[in-house]
């Protein structure tokens, strides 16, 4: 029986779900594992909900998309988008969520309230292992608003749920990211890992 790890990366168009998926895939290939992934590309990239599915296994994988109830790890680059993906989680899954919401235009229009805290509180009651990362703080620390994706990967790495080592993901960053952004992304990986180490709920 093969062992498969299903990783779901959810966010809003422009947050970098595609690169995060690519890094996991690279690490998997370097480790000699099978990997398939699937992206949301097209209209939804203009501020819509985007989800990447990444499936890693020591045996063959059929589908690039995972079934509901089978995600082992969920990276929520946006707390509401993490909640939207809950039906995909298996019991006992690990959820890494950015604390900071991206309010949609519709919320501003209808003046409906949209609270990231309510989302995090709800995620906390699911029984999943929840790690909240203060994405803004990590991005400020690293000096770029564009490293949230890698920071959350770092946090997932620290929980052990990804099944990869820091060295493996560092190598994947070196192989996949343009040279001038390598150091910044490796810093983000470590900053994310430290943020997760601060314990569940930290930074919320």
């Amino acid at each position: 029986m093969s062992r498969t790890t299903n990783i779901m990366i959810a966010g809003v168009g422009g947050q970098g779900t595609v690169l995060a998926a690519k890094l996991v895939a690279r690490a998997a290939m370097d480790a000699g594992l099978a990997v398939r992934s699937s992206e949301t590309i097209g209209m939804a990239q203009r501020g819509g909900s985007v989800v990447s599915h990444v499936r890693v296994s020591d045996g063959p994988i059929d589908s690039p998309l995972m079934a509901r109830g089978t995600a082992d790890v969920l990276l929520g680059l946006e707390p509401g988008e993490a909640v939207r993906c809950l039906p995909y989680l298996r019991p006992g899954a690990t959820v890494i969520a950015n604390a900071h919401p991206v309010p949609p235009v519709s919320a501003a229009l209808k003046r409906a309230s949209y609270s990231g805290e309510a989302m995090l509180e709800y995620l906390g009651r699911t029984g999943a292992r929840l790690v909240v990362v203060d994405g803004d703080a990590v991005c400020t620390e690293v000096g770029s608003p564009r490293v949230l994706n890698v920071a959350l990967l770092g946090a997932a790495l620290a929980t052990g749920a990804l099944g990869f080592t820091t060295a493996q993901l560092e190598a994947a960053i070196r192989e996949s990211v343009r040279k001038k952004f390598v150091d910044m992304n490796i810093q983000a990986l470590h900053a994310g890992a430290r943020a997760a180490g601060a314990g569940p709920g930290a930074g919320a």
Binding site: V12, G13, M43, A44, Q45, R46, G47, G48, S49, A67, R68, G69, T70, G80, V83, R84, L86, P87, Y88, L89, R90, P91, A93, P101, P103, P104, V105, S106, A107, A112, Y114, S115, A118, M119, Y122, R125, T126, G127, A128
Partner: peptide, 23 residues
Amino acid sequence: PVLAAVTPPGEAPALPLRPPVLC
């Protein structure tokens, strides 16, 4: 074979609608 997904802990807070928008 209904997979034992996470049981939703009560009603989820209203999720934001995110239709694609002009940047």
